[in-house]
Write a protein that binds this DNA or RNA. Structure first.
Lengths: 231, 231
DNA sequence: AAGTGGTCTAGACCACGTG
DNA sequence: ACGTGGTCTAGACCACTTT
């Protein structure tokens, strides 16, 4: 029954010509309109959410999902440029930036000694005013002292390249589906346990020196990764 | 409440020392044990499912999720070898193989003319007897006639390389989270709408000739993609 | 044949977002 | 202040799996 309802909802959305980011009526209204219980309706909505057709924003209601953003994590032209090239409007918020001591897990991954200073940035990125991801950057301050005083609402890599002449030569990227919980879920205004995509990237320069470690927590329906590989 | 229950379940699993692929008790038993409703229990279970802690197999019950498989889609050493290297037991089932006419969507992606013959393989891959993915391969028969008569329960790329001297020179990979529906969901014994990861790969040889197009539908909790990128 | 997971009903309360 | 989504109750039936 909820799968039939799912289909009726899809048809209804198409009929009403709802498009990207448009809001659906309240659940009780929809349940009445489609002659069903709220529970069953919510199951149909959850189905469409899983398929990426609609999304919800924390107690605010249900909306039609925009098209996925294409994203190549092996490039470093910067998020904002990427988004613009695809005809969307980007925005980045720097939530926090500080100089911290290298934690042990980062030490293992980067080779930095524990408690060595390292820059830590937390940023939230939007596309068309929908928050799509939370990004954590850990940057080796060697060679880019003063980075923290600059405006980090654009591409970090652009700053590193243009201001400090730092370029990544090799990158190791890890990607897997992971539920959004705790901080990431809160900052993205989604429920704990919402489907998400986790992306991690570690970059070294041509001398094998650690440059940057990066975590990204994306909404599950927000992006399409595109990678070109040779050889 | 269901988040507290989630935590109690985690603790209980740890206490009982349940490990990879072990079965949890029936939902009604758990609901009684933890003094709650089946509905609330199921919400806690769904939370743990989203986090990849447990998984369910079609009306059979809940099980503890094994570790993720690491997987580099830019390599072509073959699934079976990959899995073995990580200490697991692989298995591949060829569900269907046939020579079909190139459909229009594939024509656009590959450059093959519509209705030109192309090999189509559908395979199901297991790790430790858990079905993790459904794979569709479309192979350009030029240069590998007779491929369909060979055993395709191992690496296709190994066959192409060893039997036909075909090697990919460039690959374009697309990856995104996508709910498992219809055939893929059925073949993997999961409910329609279960979280999954979609992976698509198109390979050309050094002359730019189309070699192979590949779709993969993975369980969301089954893999960790690892890609190394230079430059 | 029994038990199980999947689904559904018809309510209810609460905390949060919005006006 | 109101309406909303998020959560919960205490049942029930069915189809499928397992015994």
């Amino acid at each position: 029954m909820y799968l039939q309802l799912r289909q009726r909802l899809v048809d209804w959305i198409k009929e009403k010509n709802l498009s990207s980011q448009d809001k659906l009526p309240a659940e009780r209204v929809l349940a009445t309109k489609f002659c069903t219980t709220r529970v069953t309706l919510r199951q149909a909505l959850a189905q469409l959410e899983a398929e990426g057709v609609i999304f919800r924003s924390n107690r605010r209601g249900w909306y039609v999902t925009p098209d996925r953003l294409s994203y190549d994590p092996s490039k470093d032209i910067g998020f904002n440029l990427y988004v613009q090239q695809q005809g969307f409007t980007p925005r980045t918020e720097t939530i926090s930036k500080q100089l911290i001591g290298t934690p042990s897990w980062l030490s293992e991954k980067s080779g930095l000694l524990v408690d060595t200073p390292v820059y830590h940035f937390v940023r939230r990125r939007y596309v068309d005013e929908r928050a799509l991801l939370i990004e954590h950057n850990y940057v080796n301050p060697q060679g880019c002292g003063g980075l923290m005083q600059l405006n980090t609402d654009d591409s970090l890599w652009q700053l590193l390249r243009d201001e400090f002449n730092l370029k990544p030569a090799s990158r190791k990227i890890e990607i897997y589906p992971q539920a959004l919980v705790d901080n990431s879920a809160e900052l993205l205004s989604v429920n704990t346990g919402s489907a998400g995509l986790y992306l991690q990237r570690i970059s070294h320069d041509e001398d094998g020196r650690f440059l940057e470690f990066d975590h990204e927590y994306w909404l599950h329906d927000a992006l399409k990764l595109v990678v070109n590989v040779d050889g």
